[in-house]
Write a protein that binds this DNA or RNA. Structure first.
Lengths: 209, 209, 209, 209
DNA sequence: GATGAATGAGGCTTCATTCAT
DNA sequence: AATGAATGAAGCCTCATTCAT
């Protein structure tokens, strides 16, 4: 007989409500997701929601903050080793982008919130925006390092990271979220293949080799 | 001496409500924009809104459809003349992107709706999505033509237009909409300069000349 | 060339609005009939309605009062001559009921208002009720006279007229107004035949000769 | 000692709202009865209404359906035993009519809805009409049986039941619902006495024995 | 911890009526 | 006389949040 303590059963419930809320926010948006929907899907009573969370806004905020660190970690980790040749940088980029796409695949709902930026309270909006900025900063830092090493031409790194992240986010959106026409070929690609396409374009543009 | 007829004064009211609504939808989103807010800002009574529009949903739909054609026209027009050298294509691209950014600047609120894709009724959502798809299709067609002419390498034009539009939309977002930190340098650029940056990256990538 | 004065053209409009309103009140009821519906059907502008009538309530009141006198006249006229034999009374009744049904047929919409007693303002309600009471009083007076002449047994004339009018109104409703099942045979009857049925029942009951 | 469970307290609230709504619908009609009136009279908040009922229309429908079965049962039960003489049939009729009037007295508000047929949504209208048709069918069936047994002359049973129900409904209206003049004597009668009057007229008419 | 009934502010919309022309 | 745009009170309903148990 295992002595399962009940002390963290609440925790489990909490986790479950969080998950359900994330999915619904992502699928239907913040306003169209009613607290009553969340509790129904989570199989708890309406009051229970408010035992665990102060408000609908609070749970949204928590959802954002929860995964922020994980996402940033993916990017920062991607550049840890120093590289010296273009070849190495390209390979590192490929690896990084793949990680980014894999993470997005595994955290589809979260990423949709981040990109589609739900229409919600100021506080949540800000949280989303900040996360995205942090992410872009992480990319920017790496571009700067590569420029210092003479691997990349010396151009405005802010603009370059903006271009790069635009690429990543745009492709991610089309790959994971756009349900309909046109992108079926894209959607059947693996994260690795998608990363390759982006890297190719990133470094060499349309005319590229 | 012009005899200004009063006959379209009603039309003016209508137009004014449309404008106010567009701005508010763009600034605060669909759900947070109350009909009562719109009429207050437009200086008319609540009932007046319903004299001109069937519902809140209807005005949103009309807003989208209103400018769709204009936007598409900008892109289609951009490629009318045939080009034969890379130089010409690059220049044409620059011109096109500039037009796109200028249009966006002049229709800032509309473009924000399009990109941030407000959380709203199905019908409006679809209208937005369709507009974006049409836009991308327009770009795709031109890439295909350039490939046929041997100006661009023969790659998947769907992926290439997706990459391109990602670039444009991402930069547009950072240029026009992101109110805060980091993008001040970007935001002070002219549409022309921004177009140059994007074209440079588009054709030659990070490593480009 | 006829010199049609335009002075009563307004009158015509007025009449037309009255007619349209009567039909709509009867068909859809007071509350479900909107002033905007009436004017649409009458082919005039919304403001025109209020040139002719003080309010929606006022037009309803006028409609009721308009035909009240006609209806009462039908009943009072029915008993003008003195009768001395049962035979004569029965024949007179038959004639009277036929008149009543014919009038109802010709004033279908008005009679429906009277019987279904629309859900409306107090004042209109009262007007309807009063009309019905006047009608019943007219019947009652005649029953009293017949009783005095020894033609009818001396019973409570109030109850008898109530019974009689119940009969008339109930059959009228089923004959003219009930659109559906069961009454098709009834509905194809003439006013004369219907009057016969009612008179038969009135004087002799179910067991009657 | 009774252990009154609190489990159906919610049910009590529901019941109370139903009752209040029935009374108000009956007294003022469907449209003039506002949901805000109902909850005020019931002493609950506006939202509470919508916890128990989907809409104003839904509660009206439920009210109708609730008592329909009871009413039909009264009529059907009235004729269960077989009768062979006129005397027996008359007595059975008297009993049945009395039951009908007693039920009506006890369900005054419901019966008013049924007879005055409130101006409301299609669905409720239909529910009311159907109930009335079922009732008349029940009467018709019994008249047919009496005719088969040779107790009543062979005439059109549809017409006869129509006449009969007209009588019952008309008298009920005057007995229970007409607040004013003229019917005071009627209104002070017992259900039994009223039933007698109607039966007398039903079988023998004005001239009756 | 958990329930679900209860709350009430506030949103969208309708519609009788008024007003400027 | 006539128009039709404009008004605003008021109705139905939603839904985040609270409360008694």
């Amino acid at each position: 007989m295992d002595y399962i303590t009940t002390q963290d059963q609440g925790s489990e419930r909490r986790e479950q409500i969080l998950e359900v809320a994330l999915k619904q926010f992502s699928d239907y948006g913040y306003h169209k997701t009613k607290v009553s929907d969340i509790v129904k899907a989570a199989g708890v009573a309406q009051g229970t929601f408010y035992w665990y969370f102060k408000s609908k806004e609070a749970i949204a905020l928590e959802i954002i903050h929860n995964k922020e660190a994980d996402l940033i970690a993916v990017v920062l980790q991607g550049y840890r080793e120093s590289k010296v040749t273009v070849q190495e940088v390209v390979q590192a980029s490929e690896k990084l982008f793949e990680d980014y796409f894999v993470f997005s695949q595994q955290n589809k709902y979260f990423m949709r919130l981040l990109l589609k930026g739900m229409e919600t309270e100021e506080s949540v909006q800000s949280a989303i925006l900040e996360t995205r900025i942090k992410l872009e900063k992480a990319f920017q830092k790496n571009i700067e390092r590569a420029a210092e090493l003479g691997i990349l031409p010396q151009k405005d790194p802010m603009v370059q990271s903006a271009l790069l992240v635009s690429l990543l986010e745009g492709m991610l959106e089309r790959w994971l979220f756009n349900p309909q026409q046109g992108y079926s070929k894209l959607q059947s690609q693996s994260a690795k293949q998608l990363a390759k396409d982006v890297v190719q374009f990133e470094f060499f543009g349309l005319l590229g080799i």
